[in-house]
Write a protein that binds this DNA or RNA. Structure first.
Length: 514
RNA sequence: GUCAGAGUAGCUCAGCUGGUUAGAGCACAGGAUUCAUAACCCUGAGGUCGGGAGUUCAAGUCUCCCCUCUGACACCA
């Protein structure tokens, strides 16, 4: 089964921020999970590079728009590489292939009779790239978001006839599974119920955009262009950027993961555009929440932005991924609190999971010739930890399939806690001081090592690096094409060598603010 | 303004169709232990469940009013 997932194509107005990193990490976890369950995944991300805002940002830096885009796009690409994001495609909307695809798509929409020209007048905010509802006789209106003066525009633009898709879009957004999380579905429904109006898809006097083929001086509105980037990316498999090939390449997308702010574009405009072009709509759109920091909105004006590069350098990918995926219900807004971040990483990863591995491996090595201890039937699949592990696997698989990263993480953690508890209950260190208990101790340690191995395997989609380190220390390795089978109890061979343990996860000891 | 959602321990949140002494994690305090990354394990303290009224044998859970916060309300990465 092809599984196609996308992040938004990030707008290259500025360097990457934590929000885009968050989305991308979540998608990475999902992509990894789907690959591990045997699906043919195409994980798409990229950048959206057109529009007047970029044009002006570049001007302000005395750069050409293309140079600006090249530079910012590179920082994105580089950042994802450093985070170990398992992306399959990185698309740029300034790619020549993209232009060809946009032209073809536009042709189809036009053939459907969904492109009409109309006059658009009103106050326009360049920051928002949109017309505002301020009355035409307003004096010097400002954009409430950007606090900048609005510009009066009187333009002949091309419009997409969204209004024709009223009932089809209603049916779509009423579907149970299309918009996730469900809490956001009603908002979109209400919006659609108010009646859909046509929206403009071209701009005049914006040179930094893709030219509309049959209209001199018009460029495509950034959103029309940007959404099509998903298709360009999917077709970027070495073949031609031809819409007819889409379905063979994995379209429709299984899921678009986006921030809640752009839900409407993805849940309403985008499907209508696809319908107009005779293409299937995506299976699902997931609008996740935003991150605040210590309870406050992050922003340049407050000077409290968390830089993803700083975070990566000072804390490492495992720590940040764990905090974002394990502590924030995916879909809800989340708050980044430094103290909590440190507490969770240290408690969960270093103390609970890391130390579990360390203490168990140490004991096994000390008393069983640096190897996985022998075991009897008592450490087979009806061992309490084996039962717990099986339940954990079921729960994690279920959670991950529904983007429940938090509950998946909690379930994994709970298995590690159970394993630690089992050690304390059976106290191998004191039983080894009594004669004739080696067999029982061997069984106990084997079971705990097995539980630890399963913890390590289950972490693979969430924290791939830590997962590797855990498994390596057990003399084990992830088999990417056999993960589900590896998750069954009994994967460790008694007698297999156990390497000298070293802490797999260092505690965070942050000095000062991030 | 209209609509939607939320206000539960210091913090982040669970609490399904109303039913025994309101739960978890973190933080905090005490205990136990030594295999281990001063880790792990156990116990404890901590809440007038935003405020008020009502329905009911019984309400965090239903109804009404009020307060506060968040989001949507057309083209904001």
């Amino acid at each position: 089964m092809p599984y196609t997932l996308t992040t938004p194509l990030y707008y290259v107005n500025d360097r990457p921020h934590l929000g885009s990193t968050y989305t991308t990490i979540a998608c990475d976890a999902l992509a990894r999970y789907r690959r591990l369950t045997g699906e043919a995944v195409t994980f798409i991300t990229g950048v959206d590079e057109h529009g007047q805002k970029i044009q002006r940002t570049a001007e302000a830096k005395q750069q050409s728009p293309q140079d600006h885009c090249d530079a910012i796009s590179d920082t994105y690409r580089e950042l994802w590489k450093r985070w170990g994001i398992s992306l399959d495609r990185f698309v740029r909307t300034t790619d020549k292939r993209h232009l060809r695809l946009v032209e073809q798509f536009y042709g189809r929409v036009k053939d459907s009779g969904d492109v009409v020209s109309g006059r658009q007048t009103g106050w326009y905010c360049v920051g928002c790239e949109e017309f505002k509802d301020d009355p035409s006789d307003a004096v010097a209106p400002e954009c409430s978001i950007h606090r900048k003066p609005l510009e009066w525009r009187d333009e002949e633009n091309l419009f997409f006839r969204l209004s024709r898709y009223q009932t089809q879009i209603e049916d779509l957004v009423n579907r149970e599974d299309f918009i996730q999380p469900t809490s956001r579905r009603q908002e979109v429904r209400n919006f659609v119920a108010q009646g859909l109006r046509d929206f403009s898809i071209s701009r005049v006097n914006v040179s930094w955009g893709l030219p509309v083929p049959d209209h001199q001086g018009h460029t495509f509105y950034v959103w029309f262009d940007a959404l099509l980037g998903y298709l360009t990316a999917l077709l970027d498999d070495g073949g031609e950027p031809d819409l007819d090939r889409l379905e063979a390449c994995g379209w429709p997308a299984s899921i678009h993961v986006i921030g809640k702010d752009i839900l409407r574009f993805h849940a309403v405009y985008w499907p209508a555009m696809l319908m107009s072009a005779g293409l299937p709509v995506p299976d699902q759109v997931f609008g996740h929440g935003f991150l605040t920091r210590e309870g406050q909105k992050m922003g340049k004006s407050l000077g409290n932005v968390l830089n993803p590069e700083t975070l990566l350098e000072r804390c490492g990918t495992d720590a940040v991924r764990w905090y974002l995926l394990r502590d924030i219900q995916f879909g809800d807004d989340g708050d980044f609190q430094q103290q909590r971040f440190v507490d969770l990483v240290n408690n969960d990863l270093a103390n609970t999971i890391g130390n579990l591995l360390n203490r168990t491996s140490s004991m096994a090595r000390k008393w069983f010739a640096e190897a996985v201890p022998p075991h009897t039937a008592a450490a087979e699949t009806d061992h309490p930890l084996a039962l717990a592990a099986a339940a954990t696997v079921t729960s994690v698989v279920e959670s991950m399939a529904g983007l429940g990263f938090k509950s998946a993480s909690e379930a994994i953690l709970q298995l590690a806690i159970s394993a630690n508890g089992h050690l304390n209950d059976t106290a191998p260190w004191s039983r080894m001081k009594q004669p004739g208990q080696e067999v029982e101790v061997g069984d106990d340690l084997y079971a705990v090592l097995e539980a630890t191995r399963i913890v390590g395997l289950l972490l693979a989609p969430l924290l791939p690096d830590l997962s590797d380190r855990i498994l390596a220390q057990l003399g084990h390795a992830l088999k990417e094409d056999d993960w589900l089978a590896q998750l069954s109890w009994g994967g460790l061979a008694s007698g297999a060598h156990l390497p000298q343990p070293t802490p797999v996860m260092q505690r965070l000891e942050l000095e000062g603010e991030l």
